[in-house]
Design a protein around this nucleic acid. Structure first.
Lengths: 194, 194
DNA sequence: GTCTATAAAAGGATAGAC
DNA sequence: GTCTATCCTTTTATAGAC
């Protein structure tokens, strides 16, 4: 029965990640407590700590799981700007995740925070993806050559992050339209010689 | 001596705001506690609560004081994009303030958070300022007419917010250069007929 | 793997004296 | 205005039983 027990553990872990997300979405990542999450998942707080050693580990796991799913579902199939937009569009269905990301990454900006390195690495990864989408647009001819992929990537990411920050406060903001406008603007610029 | 006592109260309040900022900068807004702030300012926790009724009130006051100072010092003199950049540039000297802003605004994105309304109103205010700077650029001829001031303003703000979010994790990011690049790009676009 | 029990700390807030 | 004292809650984390 080793296999069964193992499968159960994995399933429970998944369930915890899902519930943690719900709780953060409702209460915010500051007020969300291990106890609340444990209660909702039908576990004692000690039981929860068996799966994740600390609050920080749990939140990192939630964000990692999100990235893996988004990457497979939205990014991998196309590896272009549309995939980038699809991720943002999907984020609008999971405000709790967006909130966790913004709040926790800010919290982790303190030098010695346990999640600091996680976010630094994550940012490098996202930056790489964004640069890929720019290069792919240049190859397809959508973008002209007069543009620096690294700069464009950073600007796209910053705009997306900032829009999400604002969107948390005003859910009526159309992030997709604005991002598309930025992309189209850069496309137009990329064809103007400098 | 009523005047003296009053002046002292004001001075103490200022001191608290200053210290609160330091503590947030060091510990992050999650770990910063009223007690820690009170200790550093040479006050008991109860003494601190005399000035600000709650943690949320205190943080709002810190951000309000920042906005007032920035507005007077950097924005009012010019009311253009350079003023906007000056604010961001100054922010690089006060990472604690940036961290407080990002973390606290995300925390307040929960519907019934005591600071929710504060951030919604603040955003409307900033949006107005940004639109002013765009219109002023159009009047001076730096921008052409082919651009929507409201859209441009939102994009500028989002980019600035997102850059600051990233900058918290990587202080080597040149926010000014990137924002300037965005501005220049939009300026170029605004002269291309649609 | 999960619980009970418990520690030990820290959190915010208030009452009442001075 | 400021303190002391205190309250009650919540938090994370661990030890040890089952």
């Amino acid at each position: 029965m080793r296999r069964g027990a193992y499968a159960k553990g994995v399933a429970k872990r998944e369930e915890i990640l899902k519930v943690a997300l719900e709780v953060v979405g409702e209460l915010g990542c500051r007020s969300a407590s291990n106890r609340e999450i444990a209660d909702r998942v039908g576990l004692s707080q000690a039981g929860l700590m068996h799966y994740f050693g600390s609050r920080e580990e749990l939140y990192m796991a939630v964000l990692r799981a999100r990235d893996e799913r988004d990457s497979e579902t939205y990014w991998e199939p196309r590896k272009d700007f549309r995939g980038f937009l699809d991720v943002i569009e999907h984020n609008m269905q999971v405000p709790g995740l967006v909130q966790l990301y913004v709040e926790f990454s800010a919290e982790a900006s303190i030098g010695r925070h346990p999640a600091h390195e996680f976010f630094v690495e994550r940012y490098a990864w996202v930056r790489g993806l964004a640069q890929e989408s720019v290069r792919s647009a240049q190859e397809s001819g959508e973008f002209g050559p007069h543009v620096d992929p690294a700069l464009v990537a950073d600007i796209l990411i910053a705009t997306a992050d900032g829009l999400q920050q604002q969107w948390l406060l005003d859910r009526s903001i159309d992030m997709i339209a604005r991002l598309q406008a930025v992309w189209d603007g850069i496309a137009a610029l990329s064809r103007i010689p400098r």
